[in-house]
Amino acid sequence: MSGPAIEVDDLHKRYGDLQAVAGVSFTVERGEFFGILGPNGAGKTTTLEMVEGLREPDSGSVRLLGESPWPRNPRLLPRMGVQLQASAFFEKLSAREQLQTFGALYGVPARRVDEMLELVGLSDKASTREDRLSGGQRQRLSIACSLVHDPELVFFDEPTAALDPQARRNLWDVLREVQARGTTVVYTTHYLDEAEILCDRVAIMDAGTVLALDTPAALVRGLQADTRVALPAGLLSASDARALPGVGRVQDGDGELVMSTQEPARLVQALAERDRLDGVSVRTATLEDVFLHLTGREYRA
């Protein structure tokens, strides 16, 4: 089927004096991994609830797989999946029984349950009750439940929240496999590193509006931030560092000397010519730098 998976045009939603969403527009292509990022209170959840057909917009329009999701559209339910951050499972059921129960709502054949257990790496936990799974395993089971009916489009709400680094990276592999199967993925997260790695494009929201929308690489390039080249203390004096080509600012302290530059290649070459590359680290701008530049650094409750 042709056309975008999601078309959002000038969405608005107000709760009393709070303008939660103020003119949000974006398009998600079929098969795309699309991230929605923003601080707490940015309007992400309200936007997604309107896109998913859970909440009526005050104005604006949404097209989901070519159809309007509001009023609640039963034709869309088999074509989409939703995984929430706080998942609710049926009590006292094993991982396989959980999937069988969810699958039965859509007439899913039994073999699909085993396919999903294998996809999320839970085949060996199929007979384990949900409340005896680890946090990472429960998240993978939640993802499997949202995918058991083979939806064209799936929404993931912070699926790696509160997971340890190993569990997070295991879930990244699952999410990559989901997209590789042709599923369109819409993803929210507070982990900017995983958004930079997983997402084809990201929309950064704040105060109910989209501040920027592009590929992570294009957003980082657009920031035009300095690259930071750091040396262990004692390898180079601050005065010698300032004399190197391309060096802007020099910070000397905390056991290292840090040089800021817009010409990292020239600077690294100059360090190599002086045999000063031992222990050098190079830090370019990241999506987190873009995020903080756009939304600010103040604490959000």
Results as ranks from 00 to 15, higher is better:
residue 240 D to V: 00
residue 242 R to N: 01
residue 230 A to P: 04
residue 194 E to L: 07
residue 228 R to W: 06
residue 201 R to V: 08
residue 230 A to L: 05
residue 198 L to K: 05
residue 225 A to G: 13
residue 224 Q to N: 15
residue 215 T to G: 13
residue 208 G to R: 01
residue 226 D to F: 10
residue 222 G to V: 10
residue 223 L to D: 04
residue 242 R to S: 09
residue 225 A to M: 03
residue 195 A to M: 10
residue 243 A to E: 03
residue 195 A to K: 07
residue 227 T to Q: 05
residue 235 L to E: 04
residue 194 E to G: 10
residue 219 L to Y: 07
residue 196 E to K: 13
residue 213 L to Q: 14
residue 220 V to S: 10
residue 212 A to K: 13
residue 240 D to A: 10
residue 210 V to W: 05
residue 238 A to H: 01
residue 208 G to I: 05
residue 237 S to G: 11
residue 230 A to V: 03
residue 215 T to P: 07
residue 216 P to E: 05
residue 228 R to Y: 06
residue 245 P to W: 02
residue 219 L to C: 12
residue 198 L to M: 13
residue 244 L to I: 02
residue 235 L to A: 08
residue 233 A to P: 00
residue 200 D to F: 09
residue 211 L to Y: 12
residue 206 D to N: 15
residue 210 V to M: 09
residue 212 A to Y: 11
residue 218 A to K: 14
residue 212 A to M: 13
residue 209 T to K: 15
residue 198 L to F: 07
residue 233 A to R: 04
residue 200 D to L: 10
residue 238 A to R: 10
residue 236 L to E: 00
residue 207 A to K: 14
residue 237 S to N: 01
residue 236 L to Q: 00
residue 214 D to A: 14
residue 245 P to R: 01
residue 212 A to F: 08
residue 200 D to E: 14
residue 206 D to R: 11
residue 233 A to N: 01
residue 206 D to L: 09
residue 230 A to K: 11
residue 197 I to Q: 15
residue 202 V to Y: 07
